[in-house]
Design a protein around this nucleic acid. Structure first.
Length: 331
DNA sequence: AACTGAAACAACCGCGATACA
DNA sequence: CTGTATCGCGGTTGTTTCAGT
């Protein structure tokens, strides 16, 4: 092969390409005896002609115990969407929220999904959010010169989207404040190829959820629904974004980062309602992390924490249904 | 049945971060 | 303090599978 010659190509004595069952067995036996890590010693201490890197990858993606195989469940898909909205292309970090799943799996899932939607000319997020984003961009456009506007690349690429079905309004907006026809035809800006935009947070379905968490931050009232919303949770160390999404931005880990950046730049997020919703997404993601992590005994920080998971599941399922329907529409 | 394109999956590569001598 | 080795992550590419024509 390259990679299709049965994995026989050797580079400096090291084999490449698909792993054989024998190789798997050798690696598993080695890890059983010596544990994970020290991957470069595998080649030295066994007859396995694989570099340490390759061994680590094979173990992590295929041989590791407790790996969950098969298609992603609707819950997992939802979680991926929301994690991506929050983290951007941080596959390993996303995988940490999905026990039994690998970063590679999630990455592949996302990339194929993106391709599919891009090919179909569909946005990655529902019409409600698109419209809000378009409004926000218009305001930003007025406030900032295009050359310095971080959203400028998106602003200039308008595409007509037809028959993009939004989810049931009760899902996106249980209060009715975000209600919109279930099928609409309108013009919205589309991100340029390769620019990923997130789905809305599930917290929109639960605006009442973490009111008790409202602490020192007060964003006042918001344009969409004026509901009290949870404060943003700023990580101690702001994660630098992936370079794949919004490559022009210093913050590109997702829409949330972009919006947070705009807050720092004096943007008018308070009046358009996007930030609080995305911030509450951040909260939800944390809940999910706890829930999923506890369910499998993995994850961090899930000691003795109860969660609203049960209540969220129903909406999860509905959201997933909607998501599936979009997929069917594409087909 | 053959062909084609899309989707899914597997693996490699480059690079940055970290550990260690 | 510096250089090197190792590890892990994210991006990319190649292969296989499957559905539609």
């Amino acid at each position: 092969m390259t990679r299709s010659d049965g994995g026989g190509s050797r580079d400096g004595g090291l084999k490449k390409g698909p792993w054989t069952a024998v190789e798997d067995a050798i690696l598993m036996e080695y890890v059983r005896k010596h544990g994970e890590g020290s991957w470069n010693t595998v080649q030295k201490n066994t007859e396995l002609a694989r570099c340490g890197k390759s061994c680590r990858l094979r173990w992590a993606n295929h041989l590791r115990p407790n790996l969950k195989k098969g298609a992603f469940s609707p819950d997992e898909e939802l979680l991926i969407l929301r994690l991506h909205a929050q983290l951007g292309n941080k596959w390993a970090r996303m995988a940490a929220h999905l026990p039994g799943r690998t970063d590679n799996e999630i990455k592949n899932y996302w990339n194929t999904r993106i391709k599919r939607r891009q090919r179909a000319g569909l946005p990655l997020y529902p019409s409600d959010i698109q419209r809000e984003l378009a409004l926000k961009r218009q305001r930003l456009h007025r406030n900032h010169p295009p050359s310095t506007n971080p959203l400028a690349p998106i602003l200039t690429n308008n595409t007509t989207i037809t028959h993009f079905s939004s989810p049931p309004s009760s899902l996106l907006d249980p209060t009715g404040c975000l209600s919109t026809p279930t099928s609409t035809t309108f013009n919205v800006p589309l991100p340029p190829p390769g620019h990923h935009l997130p789905f809305p947070s599930r917290s929109m379905f639960h605006p009442q959820q973490p009111q008790q968490q409202q602490m020192e931050f007060n964003f006042g009232t918001f344009g969409l629904n004026s509901l009290p919303l949870p404060p943003p949770v700023f990580p101690n160390k702001m994660e630098l974004p992936s370079t794949q999404t919004f490559t022009e931005l210093p913050f590109s880990g997702g829409l949330l980062d972009t919006l947070l950046q705009e807050v720092q730049a004096g943007g008018d997020l308070q009046s358009n309602g996007l930030l609080p919703e995305l911030v509450s997404c951040d909260q939800d993601v944390k809940w999910n992390h706890l829930c999923v992590g506890c369910a499998s005994g993995e994850g961090s920080g899930c000691k003795g924490v109860t969660s609203p998971q049960d209540g969220l599941m129903e909406s999860d399922a509905k959201w997933a249904d909607w998501n599936w329907s979009i997929g069917q529409e594409i087909r």
